[in-house]
Amino acid sequence: MFESLRALFKKPEPYKTPLPEADAQHAMGALLVRVAKADKTVLFEEIKVIDQVLSKRYGLNPVEASKMRASCQLLESEMPDTEEMTELMKDTISVEEKEATLIALWSVVYADGVKHAHEDALLHQIEALLGVSPERAIELQAAAQS
């Protein structure tokens, strides 16, 4: 009986949103979020670019893109290792998709009008992990600025 009474006053476990599937799409979205967070401030402009990238890349409407971004934010917070996220993509996407991903990542960096050293270092790490040459990476970075 005492246990029944205790159960009445026990604080319920908080609801925890389940992690999305760790696939190439969500890994790319998580990297977009990670890049936005690299300067310790996520601005509306960066969120807008992330949603636009997800919408265009995966044929999502604005609400679906926002929901996917939220899932990717959760995945990003649970996956502390950038290498791990990049590995999910490295062998499953084409060279063209890798390059489009890098352009999208640089677009997030430039969305707030300021490029920080942390963002620059993170992007160069991702470029290397995806196997993109430094020369091609410079071209992709320039494409994101235009």
Rank of each mutant, 00 (worst) to 15 (best):
M1T: 12
F2E: 15
F2P: 00
F2W: 11
S4C: 00
A7K: 13
K10Y: 04
K10N: 08
K11S: 09
K11Y: 11
K11C: 00
K11N: 07
P12C: 01
P14F: 07
Y15Q: 07
E21C: 01
A22F: 14
A22I: 02
D23S: 10
D23Y: 09
H26S: 03
H26A: 03
A27K: 07
A27N: 05
M28C: 10
A30H: 05
L31E: 04
L31T: 01
L32M: 09
L32G: 00
V33N: 04
V35G: 02
V35A: 03
K37N: 10
K37W: 09
K37A: 13
K37C: 06
A38W: 12
K40D: 14
K40G: 00
T41V: 14
T41L: 10
L43Q: 15
F44I: 11
F44K: 15
E45A: 15
E45P: 00
E46D: 06
I47D: 10
I47H: 08
V49W: 13
I50A: 09
D51G: 01
D51W: 08
Q52C: 01
Q52H: 15
Q52M: 12
L54V: 04
L54C: 06
S55C: 06
S55W: 12
S55T: 05
Y58D: 03
G59C: 05
G59P: 03
L60I: 04
L60H: 09
L60A: 05
N61P: 04
E64A: 14
E64K: 13
E64P: 01
A65S: 11
S66F: 13
M68N: 02
R69G: 04
A70R: 13
A70F: 10
C72L: 01
Q73F: 06
L74D: 09
L74T: 11
E76H: 09
E76S: 13
E76Q: 13
S77Q: 15
E78H: 14
P80M: 08
P80F: 14
M85D: 01
T86C: 08
E87M: 12
E87S: 10
L88V: 01
K90H: 12
K90M: 07
D91C: 00
T92W: 08
I93A: 06
S94P: 11
E99G: 02
A100H: 10
A100P: 00
I103N: 03
I103K: 08
I103V: 15
A104N: 08
A104M: 01
S107W: 07
S107Q: 15
Y110C: 00
Y110R: 08
A111H: 09
D112G: 02
D112V: 03
G113C: 07
K115V: 15
K115S: 11
K115H: 05
A117F: 12
A117M: 13
A117Q: 15
A117R: 15
E119P: 04
E119F: 03
D120T: 11
D120W: 06
L122I: 02
L122K: 04
H124E: 14
Q125N: 12
I126W: 03
E127P: 00
A128P: 01
A128E: 14
G131Q: 05
G131V: 03
S133F: 08
S133Q: 08
S133L: 12
P134W: 04
E135W: 08
R136V: 10
A137G: 08
E139T: 04
L140E: 03
A143F: 09
A144I: 06
Q145W: 06
Q145V: 02
S146K: 15
S146M: 13
